[in-house]
Nucleic acid binder design. Structure first.
Lengths: 141, 141
DNA sequence: GGATCTTACTTGCATTCTGCAAGCGAGATT
DNA sequence: AATCTCGCTTGCAGAATGCAAGTAAGATCC
């Protein structure tokens, strides 16, 4: 566990992973504009670290070659159960902007939710799992 | 999720919570000697933060009043599923000292393991859930 | 095809956080 | 009474972070 925490035991890494997983974020700019305000140099460093740890991959987009697409590896998508539990915990114990219906679905249909997230990843489904909703800016999790 | 990460999104907090949960750690000294080497000032600050967030409580021991016993609140023990998933992930994707048998038990008997951890917490069972074993120093997670 | 815009970063710098060693006061032990 | 233990503080050097500005390569527009 301490090894894991050396990789993503900080304020930002898990947020980046979450955004890759359930929002449709792909590019540097997506993360930068995500609203929670990560500094660009820190974002660069985190993405490099996650890449070095084998959690994300980066490749240049075919259509626009200055654009870099980040994507979770299988090791990365395997963090889904953990993130789901973290989300459920946060929803139960802290104030969140997430709709209650969504939360209880997450709790009751844990396995289906995980299967769906994984399916979208596997099939490269570009549709974000989570819709944007209007709690301030950060979304549900 | 970003709220949660503000509380324990750092290198140490989750390790402290884990040690409270599955090793039998109670006191400042226990954590300090845990082998991963957290600095005492940082430990102080983390324990205060966790207390402020309602995840741990502190109370002076009756027998020795300079000793402070830290204990998880219900909010704290509710992190067990998340920590378990993190542990499973780490065991699957990183090198760990944890015995494979223990890991596969965690995966296959998820619910029982969680119930047992929670039972020990509720009944104040002092017996650590995890035995110490000899992989370097940090233990299984 | 040159000017302009976008994207993914770098760079510089001030502020904050962290790690380490030492110290300290209240309470326990001898 | 002297000493030891426990849970912290304190001081300080070095690392990490946040912020603003800059830059190079690639795309877009007229």
């Amino acid at each position: 566990m301490s090894i894991s925490l050396e990789i993503f035991g900080d304020r930002w890494s898990l947020l980046v992973i979450r955004d890759l997983m359930v929002r449709g974020y792909r590019t540097f700019k997506d993360f930068q504009e995500a609203g929670e305000g990560i500094a660009s140099n820190v974002l660069t460093e985190r993405l490099r670290r996650l890449e070095a740890a084998g959690i994300v991959t980066r490749d240049a987009a075919k259509t626009d070659r200055r654009r870099v697409n980040y994507r979770l590896t299988e090791k990365g998508i395997d963090l889904a159960p953990m993130l789901l539990e973290l989300l459920i915990w946060g929803a139960r114990h802290e104030e969140t902007a997430a709709p209650c219906a969504l939360i209880s679905r997450m709790e009751n249909e844990r396995e289906q939710v995980l299967a769906e997230v994984r399916r979208r990843w596997r099939e490269n489904d570009p549709e974000p799992f989570l819709p944007r909703f209007k709690g301030k800016n950060t979304g549900p999790s």
